[in-house]
Every structure is written in C-alpha cells, then in structure tokens.
Design a protein around this nucleic acid. Structure first.
Length: 336
DNA sequence: AACCGAAGCAACCGCCCACGA
DNA sequence: ATCGTGGGCGGTTGCTTCGGT
C-alpha cells in the first residue's frame, strides 16, 4: 500500500510558522465545533493549511491544557526513568507527564537530557555506562565538579561517580576477558577484594590466572544505571555490591557470578580480539609493535579497589593511570 | 559592529498502523 | 482478504537566538 498524501498537495497550502491570526482561527473553530476530521478542518475553519499541520499545531501548542515553561527536576527524572524503560516512545512518556507533549519531551531529551546523561558517562540509548571509554577523559571534570559542588544534586554526582567507576571496572573486565596474555592480577582475588574482602567462590572451569574467563562475559552486559533508585546507590560500596544492586533487573545476579558452565554470552576465545600481544602502532603504513604496549596485563596491584573510595584514593589513581593507555581510538576499537 | 558556530525549538516529513468499506 | 484513508508517531530539518571572537 502506497503512502497517501496527508493533504491536497497542489492546493498551495501554507507552510512554516503559524501566525497569531491563524492560531485564533484554529482555536475558535475547534472551540465551537471540535476538530472532527482534520482533513476537512482547514477549509471549514478558513485556514490555508494542511489538516495535519492543524492537528500538530493544536496538539502541541494550542491545546488549553498545555503546560509551558521549564521542565522541573521531577519531570526530568521521570523522563529519564521512563525513557530507560520505554525508549523513544515519546507519546507513551508524554502520557505520564500531564500538560507536556511528546514533541516537547522529545526536543527536551535531544537538547538537554541526552547530553546530561552523556556527561555522566551514561549511554542515553541503553542507559548503561558508556562503552567507548571516553569517560576517562571526563574524570578530571568529574573530580573538579566534586570539589566545587555546592548546589549540585548530590545524588546526580554520586550516580556520575558510580557510573565512572562502573565504566572503568567494565573496561578492566573487558580487557581481562579478551587479553590473550594471562593477567598478572588474579581476577578472583580482585572480585573478592572489591567485595569488601569477602571470598567469592571460584566458578568451575576458571583457572587461577583468570585467562579468558568466559563465565564473566555476563559482566560485559551490565544493566541500566538510570533505572536504579537513587536510594540504592549508597549501598553500592563494592563491585559485587554494585552488581547485586542491579541484579533485580536485567543485569547480572549475584548467583551468576558463581555460575559454572556456558554463560549467555556468545563471545568466545577465538572471537576475542588480541588486545595486548598484537597491539600495534600504525606509523604510516607499516605496523610495528608499540613500545608503550604493556608486556602483560596493565592491571596490577588493584586488589584493594573499593567503590566507596574516592577517585583520589591510591587504588583508583593506579587504575586510572594504568587504564589510560586504553584511552585512544585504536585501543577502543579493540575493546568494542 | 560584524561574523560565525552552537544550541534550542517549532514545524514538517514520511512511515506505520488501525479501521472501515 | 484487500484496499483506501485518517491519524499517530519518531525522526529530521531549518529558522531563530545566543554567545564567543
């Protein structure tokens, strides 16, 4: 079935911004008669506009119940939360915000909220930590914001910091999962350490060196941050605590940490990109091994990581420093 | 003051689906 | 079951405003 024209194409209907006179004609007509058939409305109302244009003008701007003005913090939070659940279903989101139109919400999302989430290190599409590791470049700003925050929403700042740590750990685990070189840091020890020292039972089939821990592939598919109630964030004092906080949703449950056998991931050792050993510099046509390429795992001595620690703590400083070499496009490609 | 690029937003485009003939 | 139509929807465009140089 072909697309039908929305209006009489050769009638020379007016396009572009509406004038106050046109608005008045439309409002007066609908007040007296209702809109009825939008296609017939322009003619009956004395407007040289396409019916669709009239409908849009009415529903988005002239309806008496439209609420204008800035979005409140509560509305912002609700939009972000609903978007994490519904995606770009603007009309569905709009039904939960009385007086706001889908178009207004969509525009506000694209111009404000999307950027806000990006600046917090959260992917606005998936509501999960960004996977491009660009976050590393934003950490100095985050630290600066934390120093000077006065009226900043402290929950937003905490979420931002948690997202940054979450992202770094995700990058770390991704690297551990893909490196062909046995990392010198014991993954299980790291998990145990980030669990506040509690021991974590080792899944069957994982060697002590943690090489290619396919069972951990689930860690690379983490849940939406923005769906987490702010009240649970302070409880995320460790990496495993963070994971379990998200476990109620589509994320990794605590039991999955100890799950043996095949996980849901289809990533295999054969598919894993050679991250470290084959890391090469493109120096203008000839590929040569990078001199600054770590000979083994770049993640050493990180057993004491704790999500409650500030970025300025030694363990986080070490991680940031040791992961900084990942913060270039070539390496990011390897990690995707 | 003039220019330019970025940001914001109103409006349009075109695809899709429900519904009735 | 098929087709035509109306209307809803998400994506995109382009104009206006603003801030920096």
């Amino acid at each position: 079935m072909g697309r039908s024209p929305c209006c009489d194409q050769d009638a020379g209907v007016k396009k572009g911004p509406w004038t106050p006179e046109e608005d008045k004609l439309l409002v007066d007509y609908i007040k007296d008669n209702g809109h009825g058939s939008w296609r017939c409305l322009p003619k009956l109302a004395g407007l040289n506009r396409c019916g669709k244009s009239c409908r849009l003008r009415w529903t988005n701007y002239l309806r008496p119940d439209i609420k204008r003005g800035r979005f409140t913090d509560e509305e912002e939070k609700l939009i972000i939360h609903l978007h994490s659940i519904l995606g770009n279903k603007w009309s569905s989101i709009a039904t939960k915000l009385p007086g706001r139109t889908d178009n207004e919400i969509k525009n506000y999302w694209n111009t404000h909220l999307r950027k806000k989430l990006l600046s917090m290190g959260i992917d606005p599409v998936t509501h999960r930590p960004r996977t491009d590791l660009n976050l590393l470049a934003g950490i100095p700003n985050l630290l600066a914001a934390a120093q000077t925050a006065t009226c900043w929403d402290i929950n937003a700042l905490r979420l931002q910091a948690d997202a940054a740590k979450y992202q770094l750990l995700q990058g770390l685990l991704r690297a551990l999962a893909t490196t062909p070189v046995a990392p010198s840091v014991d993954l299980m020890a790291l998990l145990a350490a980030t669990n506040g020292g509690a021991s974590v039972s080792q899944p069957a089939g994982v060697n002590q060196q943690g090489t290619r821990p396919a069972q951990y592939d689930g860690l690379l598919n983490l849940p939406a941050l923005t769906s987490v109630p702010a009240a649970t964030l302070p409880a995320m004092s460790s990496f495993s605590g963070l994971l379990s906080s998200f476990g109620a949703g589509d994320g990794l449950s605590s039991t999955e940490l100890g799950h043996s056998g095949a996980s849901g991931s289809n990533m295999t050792a054969a598919m894993a990109p050679p991250l470290v050993a084959a890391k090469e510099c493109n120096d203008g046509g000839t590929s040569t091994p990078c001199e600054d390429t770590p000979a083994s795992s770049p993640f050493e001595g990180l057993e004491n990581l704790n999500l409650d620690d500030e970025f300025s703590s030694d363990s986080w400083k070490d991680l940031l420093e040791q992961m900084s070499w990942l913060n270039n496009p070539n390496d990011q490609q390897q990690l995707m």
